[in-house]
């Protein structure tokens, strides 16, 4: 059912620009207004979500560890697995963000005849995830060429490496192929494994369908139907320079692509895709494991009224003196 709903949603999303641009000719709406609105929503949504998370109190220091904590000098410790300070926390966080280290340790359990429970490494998910994320990053960097005026050396190097094999014309970008394969795998995984299918929601399928359709419309435009790239850049520069223009030579496929991308960035802050920002705010990963060295104050702690002995003595000094009790201070 969740597959059906997300398929329905994506079909509607594809039909909107087909009707809006192909039928009604609202090119300015789909080329300028919607992308601006989506980008605005993206920025506001991200700021809102991050600040919301940042305001959440952290009552306990709940760092996840899987190594020996730093304690006595003669006990061997694992700095990366139980980071003793913020430097090692940053190291662990970057290995998480850049290499998906904890996903690399993913394991899978299988019931073999016997019955025997067998555990094995589940590295395919890590491979699919890392292929997808890095392809997406490279594609994003490549797309910057549509928005900046003079050619940037960095983008040129990235695109040059990406088209290293010089297959076909326009030259095949390796990441275009990789992202399609990776997304197909990530989707099939949810279809084919009964356990995963059971826990998959529409919010899991929908981003995959959306990303797949964006990649498919983009690659179709580049390799098959083709598009006047100068017109695309005129639109992109207009958007980035705040003097939007709609060139004539934009195909319907381009409007579908840009509408799906607008949908993605508008949807981004309110979906599971926010793990991009959320990873940095995970309390189990962004704190050092220094519970025994530094006291963590719970912001929820109620204010405790204390009455120290000095105050007690001040209060009852006269009475105590008269009763002949020993005093710390005679005054």
């Amino acid at each position: 059912m969740s597959i059906f709903y997300s398929l329905l949603a994506i079909t509607v999303l594809i039909l909107i620009p087909i009707v809006g641009v192909g039928g009604l000719g609202w090119r300015y709406l789909f080329g300028v207004i919607i992308p601006y609105a989506a980008f605005g929503l993206f920025i506001i949504g991200i700021i809102y979500r991050i600040l919301l998370w940042a305001k959440v109190p952290v009552p306990f220091k709940i760092t996840t560890t899987c190594g020996q904590q730093k304690s006595l000098p003669w006990i061997k410790n694992s700095k990366l697995e139980a980071p003793p300070n913020s430097f090692w926390t940053a190291m662990r966080m970057s290995s998480e963000v850049l290499f998906f280290r904890s996903l690399f340790r993913n394991s899978k359990a299988q019931l073999k005849p016997g019955p025997k429970l067998v555990y094995g490494s589940g590295i395919l998910l890590w491979l699919g995830a890392i292929c997808f994320h890095y392809s997406f990053l490279v594609i994003l960097i490549r797309h910057f060429r549509f928005f900046i005026g003079p050619t940037s050396k960095f983008i040129e190097i990235v695109s040059g490496l990406d088209s290293f094999f010089q297959i076909g014309l326009p030259i095949l970008y390796i990441t275009d192929l990789v992202i399609l394969i990776a997304l197909t795998y990530l989707l099939l995984r949810r279809f084919l494994s009964p356990q995963l299918k059971y826990i998959s929601l529409a919010a899991d399928y929908f981003p995959l369908f959306l990303l797949l359709c964006i990649a498919l419309s983009g690659t179709t435009m580049r390799y098959f139907t083709r598009i006047d790239i100068v017109a695309v850049k005129e639109l992109g520069m207009g958007l980035a320079g705040f003097h939007p223009v709609i060139p004539d030579n934009l195909s319907l496929m381009f409007f579908i692509h840009i509408f799906l991308v607008s949908s993605l960035i508008a949807y981004f802050p309110f979906s599971k895709l926010m793990h991009m920002g959320g990873i940095f705010l995970s309390p189990t990963r962004n704190m050092a494991n220094d519970n025994r060295k530094r006291r963590h104050i719970n912001p929820w702690n109620p204010k405790v009224e204390v009455h120290t002995y000095e105050e007690y003595e001040d209060e009852f000094r006269e009475v105590m003196k008269n009763a002949g009790l020993p005093l710390e201070k005679e005054e």
């Binding site: 920025i43 991200i46 700021i47 910057f144 005026g149 003079p150 992109g236 980035a240 920002g277």
Partner: peptide, 21 residues
């Protein structure tokens, strides 16, 4: 993060070439 994703805007302001055709 916000500066990075709006990089094209700053880049075009800095180089002043966004109207080139």
């Amino acid at each position: 993060f916000l500066l990075l994703i709006t990089l094209p805007v700053w880049f075009n302001i800095a180089t002043g070439t966004s109207k080139y055709k």
